[in-house]
């Protein structure tokens, strides 16, 4: 079972889609509260599948997953939303809602949690400034560039200061300078206690950071650093 400082614990976890082969095999992982790590591996190694398990989009086919002290396998469906509110996710394909403005997209987790616009307005505007999207607050995602969408997606993921942040290729569409700035944002969040997992292919980014690296290879998880 998970230790006292553990926020996520995976034991012998396997995952398969339908009747296909296992995309994750015997994965064991312990994420300590307030830790920060990279997740890397070749394409098709199972990074996105592992993230899907961690942001509660899938349940494992076998093995145990414990998150925030709750056993995910036996957790009833209606208990998932409060757990998901503790998790921020940056999707590789951004998943911004095209009919909402950038401001509304970023504020979405706060709106869903029942907060009123007046309560979160200042925070969201400040965050948009931080990611360089102040001028696009009223814009709709279809008019944004890939990098701008990326930043909006990151802002949405961090706006609630989640306990766990999962980012799938968060710097894949931005220039190196902005990538470093976004990494600084992640580190700031990490300093305030957010546990962070960043899935990336960017070896430069990994080398610059001193965080441990989880390596997925053909569905099996190893560790570096």
């Amino acid at each position: 079972m998970s230790g006292p400082g553990s926020i996520v614990s995976l034991q012998n976890v396997g995952l398969r889609y339908g009747k296909g082969r296992e995309v994750l095999r015997d994965v064991n992982l312990e994420l300590q509260r307030g830790s920060m790590q990279f997740l890397t591996g070749p394409s098709g190694a199972g990074k996105t599948s592992l993230l899907r398990l961690l942001f509660l989009a899938k349940r494992p086919t076998r093995g145990l997953i414990s998150m925030f002290g709750r056993d995910i396998a036996t957790l009833p469906h209606k208990s998932l939303p409060p757990l998901r509110q503790k998790i921020g996710v940056v999707f590789q394909d951004f998943r911004l809602l095209d009919h909402l403005t950038v401001f509304e997209n970023v504020a979405l987790p706060l709106r869903v949690s029942g907060k009123k616009p007046n309560e979160y307005r200042e925070n969201v505007i400040e965050l948009l400034g931080w990611v360089g999207l102040s001028e696009y607050a009223d814009a709709y995602p279809p008019v944004l560039s890939g990098g701008e969408k990326q930043r909006a997606a990151i802002a949405r993921a961090v706006v609630t200061q989640p306990e766990l942040l999962l980012a799938d290729e968060p710097t894949g569409n931005v220039d190196p300078a902005l990538a470093l700035r976004l990494m600084r944002l992640f580190r700031e969040l990490n300093k305030f206690g957010t546990t962070i997992v960043i899935a990336t292919h960017d070896t430069t980014l990994i080398k610059k950071a001193t965080s441990p690296v989880l390596v997925l290879n053909d569905g099996q998880l190893g560790f570096e650093g």
Partner: peptide
């Protein structure tokens, strides 16, 4: 479907 998925991921309940 995409909107529903995103709402789920940001913590919206089924009732919401």
């Amino acid at each position: 479907r995409e909107v529903v998925e995103v709402l789920h991921f940001v913590g919206a309940s089924d009732k919401y």
